[in-house]
């Protein structure tokens, strides 16, 4: 695809966003909705810009990001580890499969009260919830990618003298990287969603907590700010992951 087509596609994609903002502006400026229900976009974005400069708001973002990263990292380590083990070892597979089958469709937020009771109201319960939710997509796509590795790649490596125990790291893991990264992308979006929810349910800081505080006092403007922030964070993190992906997958055919 040439650069011009790319630019025009980007422009096309901006249209609905611009339309949405314009509609939003129109509704509030023609007085269809009072400012207490729907503050105009200008107000919300200037509030966001102003907030971004305050150390208080930076602190809220930092705690949300900390929980998000901690939970997501745990999910990646466990998910990739268990996924690879289940794909390559029949005993692990026999144990992991049914457990995953039961735990994956379980709505993890329902476990959150139990986590609160067991781990307290601090970081631990939120990080655990994020990890529990992000774990399964990563685990499943790792497992999927690793069990789909082309047999002949493994044979080629074995014929070249690779010992059996090295096949996992020399062939299976690199061949599963595209699938693992897909899982990570889903896991990252989930982490954004879940960390926010957990902070809404019980927290003393973080973006989710900001929203709840604003909702209690009916500060509509302050309710929009954390929502837009989490959306932007998700967008930035997704962009970073996309960059990592195109670097790691430079050899792989496009999918």
């Amino acid at each position: 695809m040439n650069a011009r087509a790319l630019t025009s596609e980007v422009l096309l994609g901006i249209i609905p966003i611009a339309l949405a903002v314009a509609l939003w502006q129109a509704i509030s400026s023609f007085g269809y909705a009072p400012v207490t229900l729907l503050p105009p976009p200008g107000l919300v974005f200037s509030r966001l810009a102003q907030q971004l400069g305050t150390s208080n708001f930076q602190h809220e973002i930092a705690s949300t990001l900390f929980r998000l990263f901690a939970g997501f990292s745990i999910a990646v380590i466990l998910g990739v580890g268990i996924g690879l083990a289940a794909a390559t070892n029949p005993v692990v597979n026999a144990v992991v499969r049914p457990i995953v089958r039961v735990l994956a469709p379980l709505p993890k937020v329902a476990l959150y009260p139990a986590l609160l009771l067991l781990l307290g109201f601090g970081h631990e319960s939120k990080i655990t919830l994020v990890a529990a939710d992000a774990l399964f997509p990563i685990l499943l796509s790792t497992y999927y990618g690793a069990s789909m590795v082309e047999q002949k790649l493994i044979w080629s490596a074995m014929a070249a003298g690779t010992p059996r125990r090295q096949i996992l790291f020399k062939v299976v893991l690199p061949a599963a990287v595209p699938s693992i990264l897909t899982g990570c992308r889903i896991g990252l979006v989930i982490s954004c969603i879940v960390v926010f929810l957990a902070e809404m349910i019980s927290s003393t800081d973080g973006l989710g907590h900001m929203l709840v505080t604003a909702a209690r006092t009916f500060q509509a403007v302050d309710m929009f700010v954390p929502l837009i922030t989490i959306s932007l964070l998700g967008l930035i993190l997704n962009g970073l992951l996309q960059g990592l992906r195109s670097y790691l997958l430079r050899g792989f055919p496009e999918v």
Partner: peptide, 9 residues
Amino acid sequence: FQEFALFPW
């Protein structure tokens, strides 16, 4: 192999 089976990475 007929499928080449080159390491894509």
